[in-house]
Design a binder for these strands. Structure first.
Lengths: 249, 249
DNA sequence: ACACCTTTAAATGTCTGACAAATGATTTCT
DNA sequence: AGAAATCATTTGTCAGACATTTAAAGGTGT
């Protein structure tokens, strides 16, 4: 028998309370990974609500990747083992919204992103595989091509930094950075990269890749600091042109 | 008129596709913060589905804090300005599940956490307010009290590191770290802190607080490295006793 | 006994229609 | 003009039904 709090209040909406009760049972371990939840009919009995209400609750949980559902005879809702892929997705969506809704400024996001990248660099210098290095080199080469659109340049930039972070071999760091880096792409896309600035960035990327290749984390750190300041400079111009005044609320 | 992709496939479930369409409209800016979505009746017309299906889609979005709903004459679903509070909550839930479901090991989580904390330390040394410092000192004092339960010691540990991170004055870093630090608490709670190990941790915390107070970020970094290794050691013993063999999948 | 097809049952997915409850706007009355 | 009653709109909830998917059980022929 699955224990679960079933007493509901009258204030909040029922589907929210039911979702919370089930979520708590998952988080505190009452429901284990891959375990099947009671059927919708059973849940509506247990909570004394209708099936549509139960379904709304289950959809809330599905949106957070806490459960997955399967149709058919042996189907039902199952506690989902959260994968990094799914966590990435949530992280990117959330971070993107935090930025796009002007909850945080470009400067703050930029500082956070590079601070965390610098935390990855020493680990990456020690552990990166030849594959990570090859990706970094390839992206640097792509960034040197003339005629690249700003969007393509940005995408390549993200891929480069992604390889740098993944080189650390720590999926939690990759997960955290995925949000910070990818979320900034829309803002970075607003930047016009002149030939001069691209050259500067490629130079810094090359220094970083060299440092990572040779295990010289101090060099990587120094280059990342320069890159931080340079990006902040580029962003300053963009923001002064696009940034709306502080939101009223 | 609100533009939104309304053609649906037959493969996936409808509520998921509708949720995605609306979410895309929010993320790419077609729907602005505080803007009202069409009513459930209008949406069910637009997408050619029933109202319960629309409602399931809206609940999915509400679970991600993308919208909020209001009843009444001028009510409806409104695009929600994502707050840091809400983002914290999501981040902590996700990170906690990633850890508790054995998707990542203690070592990996620990490394990621302290790597990011080290990224915060220099910023905190430069910007922390007297308030942050006072919190750190108070928590150190609490940790020195004899008779503290392991859980209370852990909670104080979290509060100490929280103050350290918040001292950096960068809400994005605080947001990222909130997940990493709080998510580790259940694992840390499994550790038995002997008087000897508490003393060691308090000593390191004091070194960190001193360094932050005097703006000596190198000292803080060194102490954090020691704390990382010490925590990994403590965890090693716990894991050898509790850790199940690697998950099959 | 084995392989193949059919049936069946259980579960989620979707629809229809209805009522309850909340809430701002409107109207009416004083 | 102001207060109270009414109304209209919208979300929240319920009941019941049918469609679709899926695996397992059962039957059939060789």
């Amino acid at each position: 028998m699955i224990s679960m709090k079933t007493e509901l209040e009258t204030s909040r909406e029922l589907s929210g309370q039911i979702a919370d009760a089930i979520r708590d049972a998952i988080v505190d371990g009452s429901l284990l990974v891959d375990q099947r939840l009671p059927s919708e009919a059973e849940l509506s009995d247990k909570f004394n609500v209708s099936r549509p209400t139960v379904r709304e609750a289950l959809k809330r949980l599905a949106a957070q990747n806490l459960i997955r559902t399967q149709r058919g005879a042996t189907g039902g809702a199952f506690v989902n083992r959260l994968s990094f892929e799914q966590a990435y997705g949530q992280q990117i969506t959330t971070s993107t919204l935090l930025l796009s809704m002007n909850t945080v400024s470009f400067d703050v996001a930029c500082e956070a992103r590079y601070a965390m990248e610098r935390a990855c660099a020493p680990l990456s210098a020690a552990r990166r595989t030849p594959d990570h290095l090859a990706t970094m080199r390839a992206e640097i080469h792509r960034q040197s091509q003339p005629g690249l659109t700003d969007e393509a340049f940005c995408a390549s930039d993200v891929a480069f930094h992604r390889a740098l972070v993944d080189g650390a071999g720590n999926p939690v760091l990759s997960y955290q950075l995925a949000g910070a880096v990818e979320a900034m792409q829309p803002l970075m896309n607003m930047i016009t990269f002149t030939a001069r600035s691209r050259e500067q960035i490629v130079t810094l990327h090359t220094r970083i890749a060299d440092a990572i290749e040779n295990g010289q984390s101090a060099d990587a750190d120094a280059a990342l600091i320069e890159l931080t300041n340079y990006t902040l400079d580029l962003g300053k111009n963009v923001m002064s042109r696009h940034q709306k005044p502080a939101p009223s609320q």
